[in-house]
Design a protein around this nucleic acid. Structure first.
Lengths: 230, 230
DNA sequence: TGGTCTCTTTGCGCCCGCGCAAAGACACCG
DNA sequence: CGGTGTCTTTGCGCGGGCGCAAAGAGACCA
């Protein structure tokens, strides 16, 4: 059951693990499937499991007390998620909602802890992975604090192309159901403002926009907006 | 030299380590002292060392390409910093500037890696620590994305009191040289706006403000601003 | 094919927060 | 003790982005 196709591919968390350790880790995993729109776990649930995504796309979100949602990041195949909370034994600080149908490998937190104690390499890989996410978020935090909305939207679109881009006649399709509101939640603004900005990008020939659908025509053009110092 | 006073106190990174392991870790450490205003390392330096603060206060900052500074977090005694980058062998993604005179324990990254391989508990502690920082930043990110400036400033002041508060006749003194601009860099706004907001707090009797100095009179009052829905 | 539901666009007004400029306050130093 | 530099306050004007409201455009279902 734990022998999905992705298991053969490179999972950062498992690099440099010897064969015996890998077998042990594989044996302890279960596969969990979730439909688009459903979630692996929700903010506030008791944190019990550690996940590595096998297929599909998952977005990690947080809810404000007022009910506004914020998208923290998008998870792709091979990425770990949720798990770091599972060690502490508290509750999940975020919700993991499947954007498309998705499947993930699941380990109970206590099992993963024991595996890491026995195979320090695994713990070190996890440390590196979490540290990389932390750094990524630090950069995004800085950008949110200092940059104008238009630039943040351009950046978000470029990131999405990289994570979920699929080449198509007209350009690079962002292969996810992606509404204006989703983009707003990723960039810390409102769907109205995103709609206006996306329209302006379309008018400039940088992309083609549809209902829950964006095709990037000119990544360079977006990069210019994202990076140009003035 | 590694036997500073703080070493006897609780360092989260070293909890649940057996005596032998702790000795080994201690033996590998060096003490590094830095004057207020100077830094342990700067963004872009080759990341070589892992630190645990022993005394003083350190702020972790990032610089935008345009030269604007953003304060990511404040480090107190017992906290680890910088190190996670040291494992990857890249460069430091942030600058660590001493706010007061400070001293920290230092391990070369390669040494700490070896220690963690030998003592998985150490790696697990580090993982938990970094995960907690990540979660903290996720919350701050959400707040930056959704909340008004006044509320963010109130929150920042409360956090500062908790991290560096010292009781004094008039209330709780934030025991750090803390300019309006510093607060602005912590809350993603400008020193002008902070000045106005702090003045309004002072007018409301919530605090006393001076040059690089804030005394909190009514934490409850600030909490009300920080948390009240509406 | 028509109806319904959700997503998107756009007009419009408003207000928060920015940021320059200049004056005031405080600390430190010779 | 006066000078100098840094930090802080405040006036002022403007503009970016918010957010309501209402119309338009797709997608999906019976």
């Amino acid at each position: 059951m734990a022998d999905g196709p992705a298991f053969a591919k490179a999972i950062p968390l498992f690099t440099a693990l010897d064969a015996a350790a890998l077998d042990e880790v594989k044996a302890a995993a279960q596969m969990k499937r979730v439909d688009a729109g459903a979630s692996f776990f929700r903010e506030g649930d008791p944190a019990s499991s550690f996940f590595v995504l096998d297929a599909g796309s998952v977005k990690l979100t947080q809810l404000t007390p007022e009910g506004h949602q914020v998208v923290l990041r998008l998870v792709g195949p091979g990425d770990a998620f949720g798990g770091v909370a599972a060690f502490g034994g508290g509750t999940y600080p975020i919700t993991s909602e499947a954007v498309t149908d998705a499947a993930a490998l699941e380990w109970p937190g206590s099992v993963m802890t024991r595996l890491m104690e026995r195979h320090p390499r695994l713990a070190l890989n996890a440390l590196q992975f979490v540290a990389a996410r932390l750094h990524e978020l630090e950069v995004r935090y800085r950008q949110l604090a200092t940059e104008k909305v238009e630039r943040r939207v351009a950046r978000a679109l470029l990131r999405l192309v990289q994570q979920a881009g699929r080449p198509i006649e007209a350009g690079m399709l962002i292969d996810l159901p992606l509404s204006r509101d989703d983009i707003a939640q990723m960039t810390g603004t409102t769907l109205y403002t995103v709609s206006r900005i996306v329209s302006s990008f379309e008018a400039a020939g940088l992309l083609e926009a549809g209902r829950q659908r964006v095709v990037i025509r000119s990544p360079q053009g977006l990069s210019r907006i994202a990076d140009d110092l003035e």
